[in-house]
């Protein structure tokens, strides 16, 4: 580079391998030998969509309805053509006093998919907010895609509670 000469450098004695050699020389039979470096390999976190289940579909649905009931959520009566979808509405308690018109009913869709014979997947999807008067204000009707700033944390938090309820029950 056309930059002027520089005397910026890495201090050799600060490199872990050189520091370790230095410490071994300083006090050979001391503690140093069995202090290991923090492992750098990060166990790759394996992510999957929703949660897996090998139980019978009806059992899975029963578990989910039971968990929703234990957590005080409500759900719409499933229609014939959507037996494996649960439309949930959940009062989102949050300690701090939000403005009165803040919607605090979170809607969520839970759907059971079959991946292959006796391998199922339960998917959770955020489905908008409602105010406690229950009427989804048309302003909330606005398609989620247009929302420019959306906090997923309330949704992630409720999904976490549901998954834990299912894990604990099962």
């Amino acid at each position: 580079s056309q930059l002027p000469t520089s005397t910026i450098a890495i201090l050799p004695s600060s490199l872990p391998s050189i520091h370790r050699a230095f410490m071994m020389e300083l006090n050979p039979n001391q503690l140093s030998s069995n202090i290991n470096p923090t492992p750098t390999k990060k166990s790759k976190t394996r992510w999957h969509f929703g949660i897996r289940s090998r139980s019978y579909p009806l059992d899975v649905m029963g578990e989910i309805y039971r968990a929703l009931k234990n957590l005080g959520a409500e759900w719409a009566k499933p229609t014939e053509e959507e037996l494996w979808t649960i439309r949930v509405r959940w009062k989102y308690e949050s300690g701090d006093a939000m403005q009165e018109n803040t919607p605090n009913l979170m809607k969520m869709q839970i759907q059971l998919f079959q991946l292959e014979p006796n391998n199922y997947l339960v998917d959770f999807k955020f489905d908008g907010w409602e105010t406690s008067t229950g009427t989804p204000q048309d302003s909330f009707k606005q398609d989620l895609d247009e929302v420019g700033s959306f906090s997923a944390y309330p949704f992630l938090h409720l999904a976490t509670r549901l998954i834990m309820e299912l894990a604990v029950n099962s």
Partner: peptide, 12 residues
């Protein structure tokens, strides 16, 4: 000695 092996060193 607990420092990870991939520590890049101290800049001077």
């Amino acid at each position: 000695l607990r420092r990870p092996e991939d520590f890049e060193g101290v800049h001077t």
